[in-house]
């Protein structure tokens, strides 16, 4: 086992615990926006697709990587935009405000 792998495993394990802890007690109204927001976050797969694209050789690899970049971009861009649209709806109520019970 090399040092890089050990690092990666450490990062992974810590991120698992962080993921469970970072969202606690979410009100029902935010379930869908939260799902949508985290859906956008995994759009970071674009990073992987970019790396693959630059390393691919031959038509098959390049073709598959090309499709991967398109799909990943849709996930990332669409994900954040659609989440923002959902949350946009909440702003109008802030002036009348009041804490949610």
């Amino acid at each position: 086992m090399n040092a890089q792998l050990v690092n990666e495993i450490s990062i992974f394990v810590l991120a698992v615990f962080l993921g469970f802890e970072v969202i606690s007690k979410v009100p029902t109204i935010l379930h869908t926006p939260l799902m949508s927001g985290s859906n956008a976050i995994h759009g970071v797969i674009l990073v992987g697709a970019m790396v693959i694209m630059s390393e691919a050789t031959g038509p098959l690899q390049i073709g598959v990587a090309f499709v991967a970049v398109i799909l990943a971009t849709i996930n990332m861009v669409g994900g954040y935009v659609v989440t923002d649209r959902m949350l946009e709806m909440f702003k109008s109520r802030n002036p009348r405000g009041g804490a949610r019970s």
Partner: peptide
Amino acid sequence: AVAGDGFVVGNPVLIVGGTLVGASGTFL
């Protein structure tokens, strides 16, 4: 799956981003 790819291409931001979503998504 994205976290898995993080191990595949050796990229920490994929591991963190993917795992965060995997764990919080399971909880959600």
